[in-house]
Design a protein around this nucleic acid. Structure first.
Lengths: 352, 352
DNA sequence: CACCGGGGGTTTTACGTATAACGGTCTGTG
DNA sequence: CACAGACCGTTATACGTAAAACCCCCGGTG
């Protein structure tokens, strides 16, 4: 005997969950039959009548399969890990939303690791969760932390970055976005741009810097200054203050992110100048913040939910040994009030 | 014979995970001993030397316990469900951060359900995840969706709301926050306030409305208008436009959320007025948005991470049959540029 | 009439872990 | 010297599911 149950004198009022065996007993069949019927694998092996009896019994008992037992049996957990820097960044919250939606559609679970602790890689950054995963979706981040996951043989899908060795990557057309920003500003007449870049060691920000340089190469405009900023509004404010003191002749500020752009606008005004009349400002990501500030930000809209959704789809494909769809997602420019032609002072070539 | 493995000709290069039995073989002991040693339950039952041998073997093989098997054995999953409206709302992203941190500290997993689908309750809102949970933490939301969880006997901790019947609640001192807002505004000289409330059927917003009314009762000021707004910047803008056309004599707008407040500021300016010179505006939550807009928002700072953390702590307490700590978390007023004494036009009692 | 095939199930086993129950081998003691 | 405990383990079992292997009965066929 010696039941494995740990409870003393029936201390919990909670109703004991029915098992497939309970359903079997109630339906007058064997447990195996219940398993077959409830997973729709019974065609030609169980009569229609019996199947119906089983389904009814399951419904009446409120049966739900025990996922732990199923996972143990199958060796798969139907759970994916999503690794993103921080959900308080709206972009990643939206990535999560997209991934979660697709996961739910496929009856997949999702565990989330916001990664402050990953920046300082612990011996085992992902704790015990590692053992219960089928795959990983990660945005650009500390690669060595991912190595411990890879060592477990977990399939990995990278979002908007490519450290090499991942099963699939889902990318945003960052280069195109930056090109559109440059075209927009140059088209308005700007010739001296400054770049406020995020001081985050992340693939996407490197890509933005490279794309900005590349895009400018074909134009009459030039990059007169670059400053690194902490990825917050305040960081943008401080970096922009440095930019405008080092390069007061810049007429447009290209910011790597909307938060930085919001900070840039504040800095500009603090110096007694106006946006966009004296200095134009562009953002990136099209966060809700972009339309909360005034003037509203000209920015690049990134399909955040879609990259999350596509990442999850790609992971599911890999797990089912299908070819993942690793297309590059298009982005678009959203022109709003923070950009305008350079101010009159500049039209006459004068100094401010 | 007849292995349960589903693989044909060894189709996966993935290294097979070592089990506790592999560790046992390698260490020259039984599987039971491995289990005892690795969970630190061996004192007085296994010699120090053997324990060390086991630990070494486990480390060398890279052993990690199979969580599915453990869950099956124990009947517990060490996984909690967090139900929040949407992570794109920074407040809930922060709640999540706090809860996730505490969960990680206790080797607990966390699954997340952003709940658009909960608003329209599906037959089984939580999908198959239900079966693999030890408990639930939920913010104020559609109560009938939670009922299906409760039917499974899952412990429930409510955040900043109390539908009754939950094992614990962790609350914010909303009333105190609103009282401070009123004191602040009345202290500045405001007498006619308007309320921009969120059109979301949520405990916290009802609480804010009630608290505003209560706080005003003791003062010479009055509520001249209330408008409901969709919980977005645009929603705040529209509602505020309605407020100011219906009650042009309001000198201060109390908004239920920083996003609404940001929209309110835009609406005020669109009417050719200034914040705070002509109209003061207050927010709620102290999102990062509050310092991104200009003027920066006077708002109520809510300890978002802490309520998440305390919620998780309370759930863990309930699961361990300890008494949960269900204190009310204090909030604070952050006075910034969006509030000031009423403009000169009002000081002389004139109409604008 | 012996035999086959197949429809409609059942029996059995394995997944990896935790733990109750059991069992040897010493050492010291009455 | 027999025997009680410590001490240090081992053996056996159960958790709930999936699925391979088996089994029985019945109608048709050579």
């Amino acid at each position: 005997m010696a039941s494995g149950r740990h409870q003393g004198p029936d201390d919990d009022a909670g109703p004991v969950r029915p098992t497939s065996r309970d359903v079997a007993r109630s339906a007058g069949v064997s447990q195996a039959t219940v398993s077959l019927v409830l997973r729709d694998k019974w065609h030609g092996r169980v009569s229609t009548g019996t199947a119906e009896v089983v389904r009814t019994a399951a419904r009446e008992l409120g049966y739900r399969p025990n996922l732990a037992a199923r996972s143990l049996r199958l060796g798969r957990t139907r759970t994916a890990l999503l690794v993103v820097p921080a959900l308080t960044n709206e972009f990643f919250a939206r990535v999560h939303t997209g991934a979660a939606r697709v996961a739910a559609e496929h009856d997949f679970g999702m565990v989330l690791y916001p990664s402050p602790e990953i920046a300082a890689p612990a011996p085992d950054p992902f704790g015990s969760a590692r053992a219960a995963l089928d795959g990983v979706i990660a945005s650009s981040m500390a690669v060595e932390a991912l190595a411990t996951l890879r060592a477990d043989g977990l399939p990995l899908v990278m979002l908007d970055s490519d450290p090499g060795g991942s099963e699939a990557t889902v990318n945003l057309d960052i280069a195109d976005g930056m090109r559109r920003v440059v075209e927009h500003l140059v088209g308005l007449g700007h010739r001296r741009l400054a770049h406020v870049t995020a001081a985050v060691d992340s693939w996407t920000f490197h890509a933005r810097a490279r794309a900005l340089a590349d895009a400018l190469a074909d134009t009459p405009a030039a990059l007169v200054r670059t400053e690194r900023a902490e990825l917050t509004v305040t960081g943008g404010l401080e970096a922009t203050t440095r930019v405008l003191s080092a390069a007061p002749d810049a007429t447009a500020l290209v910011c790597d992110d909307d938060m930085l752009a919001a900070g840039a606008c504040k800095a500009v005004r603090r110096l007694g100048l106006r946006v966009p009349d004296d200095v134009s400002v562009t953002g990136f990501d099209d966060l809700s913040l972009a339309t909360a500030v005034e003037p509203e930000l000209t920015t690049v809209r990134l399909p955040a939910e879609e990259i999350g959704a596509n990442g999850m789809r790609a992971l599911l494909a890999v797990l089912e040994e299908r070819a993942p769809d690793t297309g590059v997602l298009p982005v678009s420019l959203v022109a709003r009030g923070s950009t305008a032609p350079p101010g009159p002072a500049w039209r006459h070539g004068g100094a401010r």
